[in-house]
Amino acid sequence: MPAPSSSPSPAASPAVAATAPDPSPAQGSGSASGSGSGPRSGLGPVALVISAGISVQFGAALAVMIMPRAGAAGVVTLRLAAAAIVLLLLCRPKVRGYSRSDWGTVLAFGVAMAGMNGLFYQSIDRIPLGPAVTLEVLGPLALSVIVSRRLVNVLWAGLALGGVVLLSGHGGGGLGFGSLDPLGAAFALGAGAMWAAYIVFSARTGRRFPQADGLALAMAVAAVISLPLGIAEAGSDLLVPSTLALGLGVAVLSSVLPYTLELLALRRMPAPTFAILMSLEPAIAATAGFLVLNQAMSALDALAIALVIAASMGAVRSQIRRKAA
């Protein structure tokens, strides 16, 4: 959940921000660079984005493994607190010279970040990783449809809805889509709504704060918000050395490493291309869930994921064509 200059994603990196009203993606200053100079072809940037996605989703899988120790809220607290400390040390953001409006934007960004991560981790504590990310992606997709107000994007939304119908209507057992816990699915949808808000406030923060300063400050806000919930659920278990070490691992895999890789990628490829690649997040999540957590999928499950991925990619591509026209 998750991103350099002014943003990150729950399990997901908010690169889909390229579909937001502002052309700059949820990656803040990285987006500015990404839409500018640097080579726009070659496998290098693509490899960076895919590596970032793998890092995020395998970090989420690791988080699921340590939830029995600290609970979902505890893991969120560990992740956000560790990421905030790392980013504050690296960025050393200035706190003077900003208006009340600037701080209001950072506060809203931090609230969205805390909500996105908190709801997503509650979701993957109840349902498999692949379906959770698939439902979460619907938030940015809905934002794209609302912003564009074009018929073609309504059609893409319909395609995504088809995936959701498969998700809710499949009657299989085990870890298939048909056995999804309703509360877990609701948390995933809520995380998607917060992801959309995250994208909006990430872009605004990127315009008001230099470098990654806005991200570091917002991450600190998110950590402070999550702290009481984590303490209430996990208490002193948060201070167990092994749990702290695993929490740091989640923070590195899900925040620090992918944000760095995405920032490098955005300097070498257009933001819309980046957003299209980020549409692969549900597939990467399903793979991580299968390899790390033994969360198997049927062919119908894979089709549901494919429909949502295709809808997300189509919505981004139609946005690109509109801007090019």
Rank of each mutant, 00 (worst) to 15 (best):
M1A: 12
P2M: 12
A3N: 07
P4M: 11
P8G: 13
P8Q: 08
A12T: 15
S13I: 15
S13Q: 04
A15P: 01
V16K: 00
A18R: 00
A20E: 05
P23R: 13
S24F: 13
S29G: 07
P45C: 10
P45T: 08
V46K: 05
A47H: 04
V49A: 11
V49K: 00
G53A: 08
I54R: 00
V56Y: 02
G59A: 09
P68L: 12
P68Q: 08
A70R: 00
G71M: 10
A73F: 10
A81C: 12
P93W: 10
A112N: 03
A112T: 09
M116R: 01
F120H: 04
Y121W: 06
Q122C: 14
S123I: 10
I127L: 10
P128T: 13
L129W: 05
P131G: 09
T134Q: 08
T134N: 03
T134D: 03
E136F: 11
L138F: 12
S144T: 14
I146M: 06
R150S: 11
L151F: 14
L151M: 10
L159Q: 00
V164W: 06
V165T: 07
S168D: 00
S168L: 15
G169L: 14
H170A: 15
G172P: 05
L175M: 14
F177Y: 09
F177L: 14
L183G: 06
A185D: 04
A186D: 06
F187H: 07
Y198Q: 14
Y198D: 09
I199T: 02
F201W: 10
F201L: 12
T205D: 02
T205M: 11
R207I: 09
R208D: 04
F209R: 04
Q211T: 11
D213F: 10
L215Q: 03
A218P: 05
A222S: 13
S226K: 01
A234H: 06
D237Q: 13
V240E: 05
T243E: 07
G247Y: 06
G249V: 14
A251I: 12
S254N: 07
E262L: 15
R268P: 03
F274G: 07
L277V: 09
L277F: 12
E281D: 11
E281A: 14
P282C: 08
L291H: 02
V292Q: 01
Q295P: 05
Q295S: 11
L303K: 02
A304E: 03
L307E: 02
V308N: 01
V308S: 03
A310I: 02
A310L: 14
M313H: 01
G314R: 02
A315K: 01
R322G: 07
K323R: 14
